[in-house]
Amino acid sequence: MVALLPVLFAAATMLSAHYLDEHRQSGIGDVLSNWYFIAVIGSVVIAPVVAVSLSGAAALTRRFRIGRLLSTVGCTAALLPAAALTYAGISEALSGGIRQQDPNSWTPSLSALETLVFTAPFAVIAGANIWVLVRLWTRGPSTQDDKA
């Protein structure tokens, strides 16, 4: 299920596009437009990461070591951008300064509160992937011999 979090986030963001048009100049509209931008740009990475993660999850019962390796690669590939976006969002929100809108920017500027709201789903995705990685590496192969 954790492997599908980026897909669910992207789908929810895409589905909210009609809401974005109605509230373009509001705080929630700014957050949605930033999420939408990240979802569109990130869609290039989401599909391969999900494929690797789901392949690893499927292989865990048959070939634990291969499944753990694939799952680790998939979780790490999902974790790194989510953690980077979380770190960037929190550091920008805590800096206290609201950045001025760049006339060439593709996304609107966010206030400190809007930045924290923007960062929340990425923190959830990063935390869930960390939890999976810890579970993968603290649990050994099942009582049966590994077939790898």
Rank of each mutant, 00 (worst) to 15 (best):
42 G>E: 08
9 F>H: 07
19 Y>D: 13
2 V>H: 04
33 S>C: 09
95 S>L: 09
32 L>T: 07
137 W>Y: 10
6 P>K: 06
73 V>T: 06
73 V>G: 03
20 L>F: 08
108 P>H: 08
94 L>Y: 08
11 A>F: 15
34 N>C: 12
21 D>Y: 11
78 A>R: 00
16 S>R: 06
129 N>T: 00
97 G>C: 12
132 V>D: 05
71 S>D: 04
86 T>R: 00
140 G>D: 15
15 L>A: 14
91 S>G: 01
148 A>K: 06
1 M>R: 07
126 A>T: 00
90 I>P: 00
91 S>R: 07
137 W>S: 03
113 L>T: 11
137 W>P: 02
41 I>R: 12
135 R>D: 13
38 I>R: 00
133 L>A: 05
105 S>W: 12
44 V>L: 14
140 G>F: 11
57 A>V: 06
116 L>A: 04
34 N>Q: 10
146 D>Q: 12
70 L>W: 08
101 Q>Y: 05
140 G>V: 09
87 Y>F: 15
112 A>S: 15
53 S>I: 01
92 E>R: 15
75 C>Q: 11
22 E>Y: 12
90 I>K: 01
46 I>H: 00
130 I>H: 04
113 L>R: 13
116 L>V: 08
95 S>R: 09
35 W>L: 12
19 Y>V: 11
46 I>W: 07
10 A>G: 03
121 P>F: 04
110 L>S: 01
46 I>S: 04
100 Q>S: 15
66 I>S: 13
132 V>K: 05
3 A>L: 05
33 S>Y: 11
126 A>W: 02
2 V>E: 12
125 I>C: 02
26 S>R: 09
130 I>F: 04
54 L>G: 01
128 A>P: 00
81 P>L: 09
68 R>W: 07
